[in-house]
Amino acid sequence: MIEAVPPTVEIQVHAGCRYTSLLQTGVDIMTTVPCSIGDFLDRLPGFSKDYIINRVQTIFLNSTAVDDMETPLSGTAPVVALSAAMPGLAGAIFRRNSMHAALRSAKIPDFAAPSTQSRIIGVRLKLFNMVAAEKGEALFAAGVHCTGAGLLDFIAGHPAFLTSISRALFSGQELADSDLIKRLRTTDTIQLTIKMRGAILPAKTTTKEAHHE
């Protein structure tokens, strides 16, 4: 559940910092429904129709592979996952409009008919592999919703991310990394923005690296 006005977390990182794999567990994007998957993707920062058609080869809606871009977002908290073309037979099976779609389990997705009433919901968006690498930066620059615990979990597995932070603001207040961690521990949903600095800056202090190791 997304809080009405979640606190903002704005993070600036050094160039070369790898953080787009944070998207593999998903972030929440507020969107107005009813809305098709195609329209939802088209509204995402950095996405274009051409990119969606040519690069996004695999789409899951609520864990079911989707072929038709007109499929409406369904459920109160839809989960959409995007991937580039994937290897192996399994990759081919789940690819959009694949001739190997016949090898999926033959269960017809039960996408409930969406309400015609316009409303704003949070869509859990997961970006995998090349799609995350190519579009993650734009998405984070525009801002996403996620949980404090999710960001902490990512930081725990990616210590280099923390050492790449050049500036962090929590609800507009600049914080040291250690204080940011403390605040994230006690915050459910945050509105997260990550932006890359243009220049590669010197490595941070040994104290900070040790702290996060």
Partner: peptide, 24 residues
Amino acid sequence: HPISQGLGQYGTNVLVNIINEAGG
């Protein structure tokens, strides 16, 4: 081929997230 690009970057382990998402 676009798959070659993904394989070159992530290896076959790129499939973990996809197969997990599919529930398989």
